[in-house]
Amino acid sequence: MELNYRGRCWKFGDNVGVDGDMMPLEFALQRETRLDVLAPYAMTGLDPDFPQKVRSHDIVVGGKRFAQGNPHIQGLLGLAAHNVGLVCESIPRGSLRNALNAGLPLLPACPGITQRLESGDELEVDFRSGRVRNLTQNWEQTFDPLPAALLDIILAGGWQPALKRRVEEMLARGAAQPT
């Protein structure tokens, strides 16, 4: 899987809520996880046109505490459904896990980045190295990428495919289960 995304910037501010802002709460309460059901509602709490206008490999840029609130996965699945990448100043622990579970490429710790770009800027983000290039404003900055072990989860397509692979390897080894 390619981890170098080039697309347009969708900038959001601090404290974007996973429930309400990123996805209507009802889908979390229903434990809805089908991407085709969630895709039309992605980010609609903040931008009703987002699902129509976003394109594959665009970059969602968040401020501090992106996807804050109860750690429901639906808001992150909504982004993954559009095949975008995520760059944010910070993200709470539960939502980081959910982003990985959703297979969403992200740079989780990019302090100050929302000061350096605007919606519509052309960005290129290498999620493996952490390098962000703003082709519109002509700058480049490298942030901490995810550790390799977590990139592996994204490369596998998210937690469930990664776990399936781990279990298959374990069962293939035979005696891995002690009981």
Binding site: R97, P147, L150, I153, W159, L163, V167, M170
Partner: peptide
Amino acid sequence: SLVVEISEVLACGSAWIR
């Protein structure tokens, strides 16, 4: 707490933490 990823611990013995 790992929430749903506790399933991985039950199946494989561990799950990632930072």
